[in-house]
């Protein structure tokens, strides 16, 4: 039983990272009907932005001196990385997606794959192809509750992800821009005629999704210790499956899908074999596409006449 609880705790923390990334996929899909395959790379760049920000704040000196990195600086690292990713996401939108927005749907999709490959290779060029050890923005402190070992990092991942997702919920439901996002996702043309700046709304959508991915990148670095320029490929793909599982376009669906994928992966690794931990995600994808292609919380889109 303690073994099971242990796996569930690890799965929840991993799943909340997937959920943060999945939100970006689902928000962009909801508003543009575009699968932003470059989103995994935004997640990667976010992790690296956190890496460099922590270095700039002198994390090496803290580590050598055996002192903990101040919490204020850790929060600053998080916010800087989120801002950098938001800038990257909106730039991608402006340079790559906006020119092909009115093209047939396949065109932006291929463009997205191109941006993704470009950023992977640019990442290897700029950051170097070798994996790097992620700096200990948070010093790991394990503690035991009834035989289950929890670390402060797992708890932090869960809490930070939950806080960001709650903030997103209030943003989308309770603010003008959030309302505009929902309106644009239903009728872009009508929204434009109602005085909504559709371009700005789409930009806000990319900025928020990218910032969440960066937060996911830092949490991922904290959790997995190592980062590399291709880390966005598999993790991005898993987060995409999470969005599809929850029902792409649905924000609560992305959160649910992320948590379920995290749990499935961790339980598979624990009880079946660690070899299958990556495969299970795609088994789930195939099952969803066969049995419930609209996803758990998705709605079947009625074709407009």
């Amino acid at each position: 039983m303690t073994e099971f609880i242990q796996q569930v705790i690890n799965g929840l923390s991993l799943g909340s990272i997937y959920a943060l990334i999945a939100l970006g996929y689902t928000m962009v899909y909801g508003i543009l009907r575009l699968i932003n395959f470059a989103h995994g790379e935004v997640f990667m760049v976010g992790a690296y932005a956190g890496y460099y920000a922590a270095s700039a704040f002198g994390i090496d000196a803290y580590e050598r001196g055996g002192r903990a990195f101040p919490l204020v600086l850790a929060v600053a690292v998080l916010l800087l990385a989120m801002a950098a990713a938001a800038a990257l996401g909106t730039t991608i939108e402006l340079l790559a997606y906006r020119p092909v927005r009115k093209a047939p749907r396949l065109t932006p999709l291929i463009t997205a794959i191109g941006v993704s490959l470009f950023l992977q290779n640019a990442g290897m060029l700029v950051f170097g192809p070798n994996p790097r050890r992620y700096p200990p923005i948070l010093k790991e402190v394990p503690f035991e509750i009834g035989g289950v070992i929890v670390t402060n990092i797992k708890v932090t991942i869960f809490v930070v992800a939950l806080a960001l997702m709650t903030a997103l919920r209030f943003f989308v439901l309770g603010t003008w821009t959030g309302r505009a996002m929902r309106a644009v996702s239903i009728h872009p043309d009508a929204a434009r005629l109602m005085g909504i700046d559709v371009d700005r709304t789409i930009r806000a959508c990319f900025a928020i999704g990218s910032a969440l991915a960066a937060a996911g990148g830092i949490l991922f670095g904290l959790d997995q210790i190592m980062i590399n320029p291709l880390m966005g490929v598999l993790t991005g793909l898993k987060a995409f499956v999470a969005a599809v599982l929850g029902g792409i376009g649905s924000i609560p669906g992305a959160v649910l899908g992320g948590v379920l994928i995290g749990l499935a992966e961790q339980l598979t690794a624990g009880y079946l074999s660690p070899d299958y931990r990556d495969a299970i995600t795609f088994v789930i994808l195939i099952l969803v596409l066969m049995l419930k292609p609209e996803g758990l919380l998705g709605v079947v889109k009625q074709e407009k006449v």
């Binding site: 003008w176 309302r179 505009a180 009728h187 043309d189 909504i196």
Partner: peptide
Amino acid sequence: RTFQNIRLFRSLTVEENVMVAGH
């Protein structure tokens, strides 16, 4: 303007539909 084929934001509430035009 209004539309010949109704283009409301169907999944938003009635109140939100009106508020959204208040940019």
